[in-house]
Design a protein around this nucleic acid. Structure first.
Length: 644
RNA sequence: GCCGGUGUAGCUCAGUUGGCCAGAGCAGCUGAUUUGUAAUCAGCUGGUCGGGGGUUCGAAUCCCUCCACCGGCUCCA
């Protein structure tokens, strides 16, 4: 007999070789029907795999993350089975489950799959799912495995097999389809009841752009049709929050083919929003000892040769511009730091001057590949809320903590609760990607790891994601469709001070090398605002809203009264406009609601007579009658809540 | 940059075997209406059918090419 420890701490005895499914059956039949896989000693296993030793076992159903993962992974196999049945000769790459659903990379030779083929595949998948074919696990030798796929003429699976050790190779078969797979899988295909293949995309084999482009099909499945319907509705809702759509609807920004791809034009309302964000940050920074500077949009090519950026990115950047006669070369600035280094070097520095903090809302230009551009999230010209802190080695950790405090405060102020921080370190296997000495890298990485450990922050560590000149800490947040974007960033840099030969005179009257910290709480104004739009669906916090109210006179007779109200509200720094169009009140309300203006006042003879306002709140409806003074008090209280 | 898709008026879209001067709603303009909590009515204006080239008696529709956008991949100082 073996002891099985269940999640509630209960220990039960079973025969050697019992399965998670049998354990489930011993608890209840209903549970057994819902078991998809099991976590055995922390590893996810097939529910039907025999357990040979004392173990802790957690049964996974659809309600468990690992249960869903198993379900979707098995769905990928079901997809492959359907595809092979419909298009014999298809070669298969990898087909994992993902956060929501699964994908499979396939090579269909000359055949191209289009969205109209997806219905047919879904139908076939449902047909196969209904057969309730069992997933059969089989351990195979490497030689046999290679033999199988050689016969099948699937070079991708053979390549995958090359990297696997003999003795650890398993096949899974369901129905007529056999795949190389570590597993686990659900017991059989019958629980897969609702299927949607969502999109088709290209993907390089093994993520290598020099290798073949495979066809990647994304899909998602559910045990119930209702859940699929809800999922699709959720996606539709998310699309409505897309910042590209809302940005156009609210007249925040635009693009023009004539201006160029990836070059956003900020409209008046978007500019207001952007400048309020900048003013807020400017004040916070001034309170923390930053000094603002302004530097030009271009810089001599030699400046970037000194910094090392030209050697690293020159070939993949906008090419230098030249003076007409002398042929002097300048680069559109892709970074503000070299300019700031020159400001630092302008006068001799003493240790008493440090930390020396220079801030700039600096607009930079980077060549992004055409296929990469994405609304405001990925553009070719953008403004960083940049700053560089020059300090002593001893001050690094303290400064890093100050910046962490500022950054988290800024992100929270905007109402983001769910963000994570990624510590990006060197890829130990690719030293050639980085510049700077090992000692400096080690010291910088240590400073980041220690500082983040001291504050309450959810972090992940990514090796190989560091910038070429130093490690960094990036704040990550998701857009409406769940795509993850990097916002704020903090980077320790021992390298640029070296390259620019920056020094300060220490208390010992000797020259020393300062350390530089690059940081940007928003990251780029463009990307930050794109996320802010999606987060709020365009209903910005009151202090940020371009217009805070609209005055809606019932008839043009009351426009004059509206002007009086407008003047009074101005005294409270509450901003808005009068909708003096010759339209019905219903129409004006509808338009104001759609423009997400937080407050509107309906002004008719009743209000004019009583000298008050009929207040309506966007998204809520009528909130009652108030005098201007009462409204101002109410408004300022609400704004206070939003600003916390 | 790569794979796939899309591109008709300011916006959302119709125009489905190539065939009269390319249509609708909204927006805009003009007029009427003076309006009470999510669309008042009428008339009018507006399009080199993404650009260029080709096939054809004839192209929004078929072919080539370039551009932009959308979904991914790769990249991201």
């Amino acid at each position: 007999m073996i002891n099985i420890t269940l999640p509630d701490g209960n220990i039960r005895q079973y025969e050697v070789g019992t399965t998670a499914m049998q354990i489930a059956l011993s608890i209840s039949e209903g549970l057994a029907r819902n078991v998809l896989s099991a976590d055995v000693n922390g590893q996810t296993w097939d529910a039907n795999r025999p357990i040979q030793t004392d173990s802790t076992v957690k049964l996974n159903t659809w309600n468990d993350v690992h249960g869903k993962a198993t379900f979707w992974h098995s769905s990928a196999h079901l997809f492959a089975e359907a595809l092979e049945a419909l298009y014999p000769g298809t070669k298969f790459g990898i087909g994992p489950n993902i956060e929501a659903g699964f994908y499979y990379d396939v090579d269909m030779g000359d055949r191209t799959l289009t969205t109209s083929d997806l219905d047919k595949i879904e139908t076939k998948m449902l047909e196969l799912a209904r057969q309730g074919n069992v997933f059969v696990r089989k351990e195979v030798s490497k030689a046999d495995a290679i033999g199988y796929f050689t016969e099948k003429n699937d070079e991708y699976k053979i390549e995958l097999l090359q990297d696997l050790a003999d003795g650890s190779i398993t096949f899974y078969t369901q129905g007529g389809f056999t795949d190389l797979c570590r597993g686990p899988h659900i017991p059989d295909t019958s629980p897969i009841k609702a299927i949607k293949l969502t999109n088709i995309a290209g993907a390089y084999w093994r993520g290598d752009e020099k290798r073949k482009m495979m066809t990647r099909i994304y899909g998602i499945t559910f045990p119930k049709q209702k859940e699929l319907t809800e999922y699709l509705e959720m996606i539709e809702e998310a699309k409505k929050r897309d910042h590209r759509k809302i940005g156009a609807e609210l007249d925040l920004f635009m693009f023009s083919e004539k201006v160029g791809s990836g070059l956003p034009l900020w409209l008046p309302k978007g500019t207001q929003l952007r400048e309020r964000l900048q003013n807020y940050l400017r004040t916070e920074q001034e309170n923390r000892g930053y000094q603002m500077v302004v530097t030009p949009h271009i810089g001599s090519k030699s400046l970037y040769e000194t910094s090392g950026h030209y050697a690293k990115y020159g070939a993949d950047s906008f090419q230098p511009i030249k003076t007409p006669r002398e042929g002097e070369e300048f680069l559109l600035k892709p970074m503000n730091c070299p300019h700031h280094c020159e400001i630092y070097a302008h006068r001799p520095k003493s240790y008493r001057d440090l930390p020396y903090r220079l801030g700039e809302f600096g607009t930079v230009y980077r060549y992004e590949q055409a296929g990469e551009l994405h609304g405001l999230s990925r553009v070719r010209g953008f403004t960083q809320d940049d700053a560089h802190i020059f300090c002593t080695v001893d001050q690094v950790k303290g400064e890093f903590l100050n910046v962490l405090e500022l950054t988290t405060q800024v992100i929270r102020k905007m109402g983001f609760k769910n963000f994570t921080a990624q510590i990006s370190l060197r890829d130990p296997n690719k030293p050639e990607k980085y510049i700077g000495s090992d000692e400096n890298w080690d010291a910088a990485e240590k400073a980041i790891i220690e500082a983040t450990a001291e504050v309450d922050l959810v972090t992940t560590t990514a090796y190989g994601e560091a910038a070429f000149y130093g490690p960094k800490l990036d704040f990550m947040i998701k857009d409406a469709l769940g795509r993850s974007w990097q916002l704020g960033t903090i980077q320790v840099d021992y390298n640029l001070p070296e390259r620019f030969d920056l020094t300060y005179t220490g208390a010992d009257n000797k020259p020393h090398r300062p350390v530089m910290i690059h940081r940007a709480p928003f990251g780029s104004m463009e990307r930050f605002i794109s996320i802010l739009i999606e987060h709020t669906a365009g209903k910005f916090p009151l202090w940020l809203a371009p217009d805070q109210y609209a005055l809606l006179p019932v008839s043009e007779k009351w426009i004059e009264y509206c002007q009086e109200v407008e003047n009074q509200l101005k005294k409270y720094d509450i901003r808005g406009f009068i909708d003096d169009r010759n339209e019905s009140v219903g129409k004006k309300i509808r338009d104001t609601e759609l423009k997400k203006v937080p407050f509107m006042f309906i002004i008719g003879d009743k209000e004019v007579e009583a000298g008050n306002l009929s207040v309506r709140r966007q998204g809520h409806g009528d909130v009652g009658i108030m005098t201007v003074e009462e409204f101002a008090k109410y408004f300022l209280e609400e704004a206070e809540k939003d600003a916390e």
